[in-house]
Design a protein around this nucleic acid. Structure first.
Lengths: 192, 192
DNA sequence: GCTAAAAGCTAAACCCATTAGCGATCACCG
DNA sequence: CGGTGATCGCTAATGGGTTTAGCTTTTAGC
């Protein structure tokens, strides 16, 4: 019996891909094992248990999302950067719904948890967008949470087919970007 | 052995309460059966299976959320109505995290599905808020989705402890309400 | 009181995650 | 080239969860 040549990273990557296909809730060790060409218990040589797998998938997803958002905002500022970040984020969630779902409800165990560091990287990517707006320093955290909430909410609702009625969903997303842009531009500005 | 006197509504209500306590993902038929004083298989006399239970919990949660939002906006308009609706919605999600989680990812089977009708009621409740803003009719759907996305996103992230760093979460929510309010007040207004 | 449907129960099947323990393989070192 | 220990994969088995089958008891209506 030849070896499969697996390692934790390969298992996690396959798990993330499988989650994207079948949905995070339906991700099972059995299916994943079959996918990577191994019997179920063998997965436990690379991953401590399903919760560990989920957490690693979540960390991977957050890191990938941070990369996508970061790359999208390179060389842009203001509304341009906001729109690029928002579109990159939503695209990522829509193309990788399973792995992104893994990020919902996980709590980092501490500041060194890969989940925490990847999450921070995503926040940093969004922070870059805010530099293009004239915000008071004490409003940065609030604005960051507002961005994250709005785009997370839209992307997850769309990914779950939560928008049922008529209007075009892409138009709605552009409209949301405009709404946020207008809101950010009319804050009480930073004191000089 | 005396009867427990259950019916579907009682089972669903107990399931929703249990989900709020232990988390939606941890909701199990065994725990629910124990909670209502019955052996596990007996639950299947009132509910066809776990998926059916989840869907009924989701419909209940959406209906309750619609009631809460609707009641909060009574007699208010403009920013007042927006803030009242947003706070009522977030309060509901935070006090009933388990049952609200049941609504994520469920798809109504058709327009008569209780999930669809309760979801529509929630949208109607939010639509009332928008009447206080001067929006072109073709922007109503977009604005509705923006509202739902923002508040859904914030509430679910907070409920999942997704906000880790320093600033006060309640302050951030009020800031989000302001952001949305400013954005809604600066749309290109409806043509007279 | 009789009857039939409803609601509960036990027993059992099946699926999934996980652990224990065994054999094969591979990397490294002489 | 051979030995050796760690690593990887396997089979077997356990335990918990959902769900079905079939039986018994209660209860509502006549």
């Amino acid at each position: 019996m030849p070896r499969a040549g697996l390692d934790p990273a390969a298992v996690v990557a396959a798990g993330a891909a499988l989650a994207d296909e079948v949905g995070f809730a339906a991700l099972s060790m059995g299916q994943l094992a079959e996918r990577v060409g191994v019997r179920t218990p063998s997965l436990y040589k690379h991953v401590v248990n399903q919760d560990d797998l989920n957490r690693r998938i979540a960390a991977l997803a957050l890191a990938e999302a941070a990369d996508a958002v970061g790359a999208a905002t390179q060389g842009r500022a203001g509304r341009d950067a906001l729109a690029a970040a928002a579109r990159a984020f939503r695209d990522f969630v829509l193309t990788h719904p399973g792995r992104y779902a893994a990020t919902i409800g996980v709590e980092p165990t501490g500041p060194d948890d890969p989940i925490a560091v990847a999450g921070s990287r995503l926040l940093v990517a969004f922070t870059a967008v805010l530099r293009g707006y004239d915000l008071a320093p004490d409003q940065l955290d609030h604005a960051l949470r507002a961005l994250r909430s709005s785009f997370h909410g839209f992307a997850t609702l769309q990914s779950a087919h939560g928008f049922q009625w008529s209007a075009d969903v892409d138009d709605s997303f552009e409209w949301l970007i405009d709404l946020v842009d207008r809101g950010l531009r009319t804050t009480s500005p930073a004191q000089a």
